[in-house]
């Protein structure tokens, strides 16, 4: 947890004594450089803007519990008069009796999302670490390519990408979904930037003197020290791969990913827009679809907030 810095402000105590006082005496201690008024201003602003930001999340939760007649009230209401579970029940009935069982779609999505997240974090952080901390010919060139790719707008790449995958025989396999996402340039860029300040060179040297090989250094020393960074790219990877539709790479029914399959079943996409008669159900579906990313997000974020205390070594 964030270690707040305390120092004694009580002027009545002589300075030499103040330094010797035990840390426990918090009543006489203050966080460094923080004013009460500033704290108030910050919290006030956060709450005000926070309400504004959280509105869509709240709204999509509310809508899932609205009966059909309330869903179509215009202008839309931000509360429910008679909440109902009908939407969820109807979702259950509709997915009960499918040609390809729902569990298969769930497996497809969970399997691809988990493998993408894991492989992306490992590959991107390994490459990011090496590009920042090792000196070898071509590292700058590689990194510039990654940055350039990040700025290239995706739309026009779809066809060449399809051709590449078709040539490799990957269309309609999990590979088509997993492999391109594993090498997403965003993660590498973020990891490399974090290596600059979070990993002192002396730490790496010390590990090498102790006989660790490069891979051990990476896994045992670097990764724990950039935990906030890799948890952050894990959030991005999981979120985007969970919402991946498989696009033009997946065609056979049993290989389809959850967002596509649900879109077909409920004649709507996972965002809740689509067929009017099933608006309620698609609201329920979109609520259920955002639960895994939210859970993943909350777990990672609370871990990010906890990593600080062991900050390695100081030069």
């Amino acid at each position: 947890m964030a270690k707040d810095i305390y120092y004694n402000t009580d002027e009545s105590i002589p300075e030499e004594l103040r330094d010797k006082m035990p840390k426990k005496m918090k009543s006489r201690q203050k966080k460094v450089n923080r004013s009460g008024f500033g704290n108030f201003l910050i919290i006030f602003m956060l709450v005000l803007v926070g309400i504004f930001m959280a509105l869509p999340l709240y709204y999509s939760v509310i809508c899932a519990f609205k009966p059909l007649n309330e869903l179509f009230i215009f202008p839309p209401r931000f509360y429910v008069v008679s909440p109902t579970l009908d939407n969820f029940r109807m979702m259950w009935t509709l997915t009960d009796n499918l040609w390809v069982p729902l569990s298969r779609y769930i497996f497809n999505s969970v399997f691809t999302a988990v493998s993408i997240t894991f492989l992306h974090v490992v590959f991107a952080s390994m490459a990011g670490f090496v590009m920042e901390k090792h000196r070898f010919p071509g590292r700058n060139g590689m990194f510039n390519l990654v940055q350039f790719a990040l700025l290239f707008t995706g739309g026009t790449m779809a066809i060449p990408q399809y051709v590449v995958m078709a040539l490799m025989g990957m269309i309609n396999t999990y590979w088509a979904v997993i492999l391109p996402a594993v090498a997403s340039s965003l993660g590498l860029f973020l990891m490399k930037q974090f290596m600059v300040s979070s990993i002192p060179d002396s730490m790496l040297e010390a590990a090498k003197i102790d006989g660790a090989n490069e891979f051990t250094v990476y896994w045992k020393i670097v990764m724990p020290n950039v935990k906030p960074a890799w948890l952050t790219i894990a959030i991005f990877a999981f979120q985007s791969s969970w919402n991946a539709t498989g696009g033009n790479m997946i065609y056979s029914e049993s290989m389809k990913l959850l967002p596509t399959a649900l879109g077909q079943i409920f004649a709507a996409d996972a965002t809740g827009v689509g067929n009017i008669a099933r608006t309620g159900v698609s609201m329920a579906v979109s609520l259920i679809m955002i639960i895994p990313p939210i859970v993943f997000f909350v777990i990672s974020q609370s871990n990010i907030m906890e990593t600080m205390s062991h900050s390695g070594m100081k030069d």
């Binding site: 490459a127 090496v130 590292r139 090498a183 590498l188």
Partner: peptide, 21 residues
């Protein structure tokens, strides 16, 4: 060793991003 550690990412990146770009 450095190249070996960059390779998994860079190979996939080349195939699925650099070539299409």
């Amino acid at each position: 060793i450095s190249y070996a550690m960059v390779a998994p990412f860079m190979i996939l990146f080349t195939i699925f991003t650099i070539v299409p770009v």
